[in-house]
């Protein structure tokens, strides 16, 4: 016993190093596994507050660009609104305050963004107090951004689609063939759509949208366009290079999208099993 204690005292710095090193490797492995609650994340009072302060200064530099995006979106929405009014015979107005909406949108500002790592995360300035939950989709007017991972009272961290752990269901706009959206960590402009069946009519320039196969994103949110595609090693599936519509290096405001039927769908799926 005496010898063991002596050994520990003699090698205390090495043992401490070993302990702390293994602890950090454990945190690292945990951060690489999808969907586990993490101890170390930026969705907390301290880092959220500091990023909030820094962002309140840096957001002034992007105001012009932000305005252009808003005008563009307004234009698009107005054109939809006016066009639907002209052929108004199909729209019936219901006099009620409880519309049967399927999705709820919450707007939020991005206060931290990264795109140079292999596991990129964003931080947004809304959290549990604003009604957000885990696993909600995050989008902009141009396309998808990612999925909420960790939350605190006023902040949440978002797994970017530029994250090697991210897997999102996506499909072609012109047909219903679907695959999985991944990122090979090489460029923040391109993501890869894998497991797209060989039979799918892919061609360069096609639009890729989200598929409705998960409850996170509604079907039909734009993602990007096909710039290149080739068969994988087994020659059964295409690997498609997708150029994102969003400029992931410059994101100001986002929307968090919540499917209000998630619980119902999940219950149904559980009953099936």
């Amino acid at each position: 016993m005496q010898r063991i204690i002596n050994f520990i005292i003699r090698n205390q710095s090495f043992l401490l190093f070993l302990l702390l090193f293994l602890l950090s490797v454990f945190f690292t492995i945990q951060s690489h596994s999808y969907h586990k609650s993490k101890f170390i994340n930026s969705a907390n009072f301290l880092s959220g507050g500091i990023y909030d302060g820094a962002n309140s200064i840096s957001q002034y530099f992007g105001l012009r660009k932000e305005n252009e995006v808003l005008i563009e979106e307004n234009n698009r929405l107005k054109s939809i609104m006016f066009n639907s009014e002209t052929n108004g015979s199909e729209t019936t107005s219901i006099d009620t305050i409880s519309y049967d909406t399927k999705y709820r949108l919450t707007s939020a500002a991005v206060i931290k963004n990264s795109y140079s790592l292999t596991t990129n995360m964003l931080l947004i300035d809304k959290g549990v107090n604003d009604g957000l939950k885990e696993d909600l989709g995050v989008i902009t007017s141009k396309g998808i951004i990612g999925i909420i991972e960790n939350l605190s009272g006023n902040y949440s961290s978002v797994i970017s689609i530029l994250n090697s752990n991210s897997r999102i269901n996506a499909q072609l706009k012109k047909s219903d063939h679907f695959g999985t959206l991944e990122w090979n960590t090489e460029s923040p402009v391109f993501v890869q759509l894998v497991d797209m069946p060989k039979i799918a009519p892919v061609s360069v320039g096609d639009t890729i949208i989200t598929g409705g196969r998960s409850t996170i994103f509604p079907k039909g949110i734009p993602i990007g366009k096909v710039t290149d595609f080739k068969l994988d090693l087994a020659e059964d599936f295409y690997t498609i290079q997708v150029e994102l519509f969003n400029d992931m290096t410059n994101i100001g405001h986002v929307f968090v999208i919540e499917n209000l039927d998630t619980e119902e769908i999940m219950n149904l799926l559980e009953n099936d099993e």
Partner: peptide, 15 residues
């Protein structure tokens, strides 16, 4: 690591 959501990579390298 806490600020950059990177798990424990900076901690491991620093230690």
């Amino acid at each position: 690591d806490m600020f950059s959501d990177s798990g424990g990579v900076h901690a491991a390298a620093s230690v």
